[in-house]
Amino acid sequence: MKKALFLALAVAFPSLAHAHPHVFAEARLEAISDDQGNISELRNVWRFDEVFSSSVLMDFDSNRNLKLDPDEAAVVGQTVKDSLAEYGYYMNIAADGKEVKITPPDVINVLYQDGKLLMFFILKPEEPLPVKGRITLGVWDPTFYTSIDFVHDEDMATEGKAVSACKRTVLRPDPDEVLAQNQDKLTAAFFDDPAGTNMSKLFAVQLELSC
C-alpha cells in the first residue's frame, strides 16, 4: 500500500497549488499507421530525471540491491498504469479539433539503468483514427506536476505509409510569450482551482499532422 501511495502521489495526484513541475522526463512519441490508413499505435518512451528515479528506486527496491529486479519493475509499471488511467496516460489527441480517446496500455514496461527510470508503453485509439484532416498529438500532465519534454523535433516521430505522407509540424510554444500572454491569470487562485488549469497545454510541445 505504501508503495502504491508513493507513486500515485508523486506522479498522478499532486496538489494543484504547485505552480511548476517537480518531476521531469525526456520523452519520445512514435505515431504508427497501419495498412488500413489509420493511426494504430502511439509508442511512448519516458526517461525520468535522476532525483525522481532514485526516489522510486528507494521505495520499490524491496531487496535493497540498488536496482529494480524484474518483479520490482513490474510493480512500478502496474502502479503507474493504475495511477495514470484517470489522466489518459498524459496522451492528448485531437482530430480536426475533436478529442480522440485512447485505450489503456496492456503493460507499462519499466527499467532502471544508468541512474534513471525508463518507462515505455503503447497506447491505441479507442476508435479507428483515419489519417486525414488535421491531427494533433501531445503528451502533458494536466496537473502541471510532471514535465514531459521532447528535446528534439525528431522525438515526435511517425512511421507507416499513410502517416508519413502527412505534413509534419512540431509546435513549440515560447515560454516567455506564454507567461506574458497569461500573466493576469497566474494568481494563487488560478493554481488552487479544484477544476484544474490549462497551463500544461499552454507550454506543451505538440505534433501537428496535416493529411
Score class of each variant (00 low, 15 high):
residue 61 D to K: 00
residue 87 Y to S: 14
residue 107 V to P: 09
residue 31 A to E: 03
residue 106 D to Q: 15
residue 85 A to F: 12
residue 63 N to G: 12
residue 113 Q to M: 07
residue 93 I to A: 02
residue 98 K to V: 12
residue 152 H to Y: 15
residue 102 I to Q: 10
residue 75 V to L: 02
residue 136 T to E: 08
residue 150 F to D: 02
residue 76 V to E: 02
residue 48 F to Q: 10
residue 143 T to G: 09
residue 123 L to T: 01
residue 38 N to C: 15
residue 52 F to R: 01
residue 59 D to G: 15
residue 121 F to S: 11
residue 124 K to M: 13
residue 22 H to Q: 02
residue 78 Q to N: 07
residue 63 N to S: 12
residue 27 A to L: 04
residue 86 E to N: 00
residue 32 I to F: 13
residue 102 I to D: 03
residue 90 Y to L: 09
residue 138 G to W: 03
residue 147 S to Y: 02
residue 77 G to W: 08
residue 71 D to Y: 10
residue 144 F to T: 02
residue 42 L to K: 04
residue 97 G to D: 13
residue 141 D to A: 07
residue 38 N to L: 14
residue 66 L to T: 10
residue 80 V to S: 10
residue 50 E to S: 13
residue 154 E to C: 05
residue 58 M to S: 15
residue 39 I to H: 09
residue 147 S to V: 09
residue 23 V to I: 13
residue 92 N to G: 10
residue 111 L to H: 06
residue 27 A to I: 06
residue 56 V to D: 12
residue 43 R to E: 12
residue 22 H to R: 04
residue 57 L to H: 04
residue 144 F to I: 05
residue 43 R to S: 07
residue 111 L to E: 03
residue 107 V to E: 14
residue 58 M to T: 09
residue 27 A to H: 10
residue 65 N to C: 06
residue 41 E to F: 02
residue 146 T to F: 08
residue 142 P to V: 03
residue 128 P to S: 09
residue 115 G to A: 07
residue 53 S to A: 09
residue 130 P to S: 01
residue 102 I to L: 09
residue 128 P to K: 07
residue 123 L to H: 01
residue 37 G to P: 05
residue 73 A to V: 04
residue 81 K to C: 03
residue 124 K to P: 11
residue 148 I to Q: 05
residue 78 Q to V: 05
residue 96 D to R: 00
residue 51 V to E: 10
residue 102 I to K: 01
residue 137 L to D: 06
residue 118 L to E: 12
residue 141 D to S: 11
residue 106 D to A: 15
residue 46 W to A: 00
residue 54 S to N: 06
